[in-house]
Amino acid sequence: MSDQEKGNCIGVYCVAKLSTGDYMTTFMTQAELNACAQQNGFNSSVWSGPFRGEMEKKACIKHAFKLWPKFKDNCFSNVVEYLNYTKEGI
């Protein structure tokens, strides 16, 4: 299916498989993603350029991460913490 056939994006989702074998799914609507974009500088090149889809995915993953069970010495936790406290967030 080509990009022209797909239609407008209504949101993004993230699925995580937990160590228990259960799955957690988190969905963000386009309105929530637009709010993230505005909060992070909607006119910045990464949010308004060709990488907008990647920024939306990252926003959803970071949002979902807040809901996941926390573990000590979690490498992903360290990466998210770094992204939250750096200007680039890349």
Rank of each mutant, 00 (worst) to 15 (best):
S2P: 03
D3M: 08
D3P: 13
E5H: 10
G7C: 11
G7I: 04
C9M: 02
I10G: 00
I10S: 03
I10A: 04
G11M: 03
G11N: 05
Y13V: 05
C14E: 04
S19L: 08
S19R: 09
T20C: 09
T20E: 07
G21C: 06
D22V: 06
Y23R: 15
T25L: 06
T25W: 00
T26Q: 04
T26I: 03
F27S: 09
F27Q: 10
F27P: 01
A31W: 12
A31N: 06
L33H: 05
N34Y: 09
N34T: 15
N34R: 11
A35C: 09
A35W: 14
C36H: 15
C36W: 15
Q38C: 03
Q39F: 15
Q39E: 15
N40R: 07
G41P: 07
G41Y: 13
F42S: 09
F42Q: 09
S44F: 02
S45F: 03
V46S: 14
V46R: 14
W47K: 02
S48E: 01
S48L: 04
G49T: 05
P50T: 13
P50N: 10
P50V: 08
F51W: 09
F51P: 02
R52C: 03
R52Q: 06
R52E: 02
R52S: 01
G53I: 05
G53F: 08
G53E: 08
E54H: 08
E54D: 05
E56I: 00
K57E: 02
K57Q: 10
K57V: 02
A59N: 05
A59M: 02
C60T: 15
I61M: 04
H63L: 01
F65L: 01
F65W: 05
K66P: 01
K66A: 04
L67W: 03
L67K: 12
W68L: 14
W68F: 11
W68R: 05
P69G: 10
P69M: 04
K70M: 08
K72N: 11
D73L: 13
C75R: 12
C75I: 02
C75H: 07
F76T: 12
F76E: 07
S77Y: 00
S77P: 00
N78K: 09
N78D: 06
N78S: 05
N78C: 01
N78F: 03
V79K: 15
V79M: 14
V79H: 15
V79A: 07
V80D: 08
V80W: 10
E81A: 08
L83F: 08
Y85G: 14
T86H: 12
K87A: 11
G89I: 00
